[in-house]
Design a protein around this nucleic acid. Structure first.
Lengths: 230, 230
DNA sequence: AGCGGATATATTGTCGACAAAATTGCAATA
DNA sequence: TATTGCAATTTTGTCGACAATATATCCGCT
């Protein structure tokens, strides 16, 4: 196949991937001509892709001065997790109230997969992290709220992956997360919305605490404040 | 002054305005060449503006088939208000906990303005509705959460204005809303986060109930189900 | 030697033209 | 008359070139 979709889609996807994985460093200025060259396309499609990423808040544009990759600092992550707690908490309550039995089964299947996966290769945290997002998305879908789904699978998804890549060299915590997932699924299976919301909020808050600790430690180790302006 | 900003900004602003006010009907297909002609610019900037609006969910694009104005149906509004309840409830709690005294004063000033305005011209609901959003944005700013602020002042803002234009020919309810606003400000002034969140959530839920009633009545009157496909 | 300004370079913003795809309209056939 | 296939037209997707703006370089001056 040549180009299944449009060039803008290709560019947006590759750019997002490069930003998320850190291939394009945070705060780095992006050169349109160079990127267009690298992707083998004109500047037009690339600019449109950048505009889309702008909407997803992966880059920010200063008129006549180009676009830069966002800087995912502590404050931004804190804001993101606050938003997630509110949004996914709500979604989890709605999901518990509305999910069909087959959807609950799907969720339990996913959970079982995670369990065996963690059982087998106890350290393979990366894939767990990736499919942790599947778990959250499945629940968002259960809420029947298209806006939450699109936020979670769009900009939140990218920012969370970006955060993981940033903190992945340090240890994760798959086991407590799995336990919490199990509790959440159980509450959903019993259609207990109130409990499901509470558990999900606690789960996300716990994740933030864990990430915050990592970031603080990281910032402490890199405490030599060398200027990196312009 | 000629063009204070870039053409893309101009196009995006005019398009958003046209969509919000209904000048461009919901579901209508947008012709790039025609719009570029109308705005006196090339198709390039216009396309980029459309991509930005795509990010704000004011239009949706189908590859090789053009962009269409979103349809703000009942379901979409219901989703929006659920998101608002969760998000602004959270923001209101944070605002109550973190706002400075001068910020609280600002809020009280705004409230007083609304009171005198409603006192004077009891029916002038439009401006009230517009500045109702100021009220909500001031609180979002008090939360110190940039993500909430940007959501509220970006896509939520536009969608809410769009909703108002759609239901403005019917009666609004400025007085109960004002009372609720007063309660919320009081809770914030006392830095009672829990109460502030509860009141804000109730306020938004109430607004949704009111709007839902309007929409249902409207859909009932236009109950002749004529097909409007393609 | 340090600073200010002017020139040169690089990068973004915009336009017009061409290619590819989809839609429309027509006509021929069952 | 309905339907299917083909052709013409419209519309989107993409590219390359030019204009406007910002950034970097270098030279003269105090």
């Amino acid at each position: 196949m040549e180009t299944a979709t449009t060039l803008v889609d290709v560019a947006a996807k590759r750019l997002a991937e490069a930003i998320v994985t850190g291939e394009l460093a945070q705060g780095q200025k992006l050169n349109e001509a160079e990127l267009a060259e690298r992707f083998g396309m004109g500047r037009g499609p690339l600019r449109e892709a950048l505009r889309r990423l702008e909407g997803q808040r992966l880059v920010s544009r200063i008129p006549n001065a180009g676009v830069r990759v966002i800087i995912l600092d502590r404050k931004r992550l804190e804001d993101l997790y606050a938003v997630r707690e509110a949004l996914e908490g709500m979604a989890c309550r709605l999901a518990a109230e509305q999910m069909t039995e087959s959807e609950v089964l799907q969720l339990q299947d996913l959970l079982a997969q995670h369990e065996t996966q963690i059982e087998k290769d106890g350290g393979m945290v990366y894939s767990q992290s990736e499919s942790d997002l599947d778990f959250h998305f499945l629940i968002a879908r259960g809420s029947r709220n298209a806006m939450v789904m699109s936020l979670l699978s769009g900009e939140h998804f990218q920012l969370l992956r970006m955060c993981r890549y940033r903190t992945s060299r340090n240890a994760q915590r798959p086991r407590p997360a799995l336990t919490q997932h199990r509790q959440i699924v159980e509450a959903i299976a019993q259609h207990d919305g109130e409990l499901a919301e509470l558990l999900m909020r606690r789960h996300i808050r716990g994740a933030w605490q864990s990430i915050r600790a990592l970031i603080d430690a990281e910032e402490l180790s890199a405490s030599v404040p060398r200027k990196e302006n312009s």
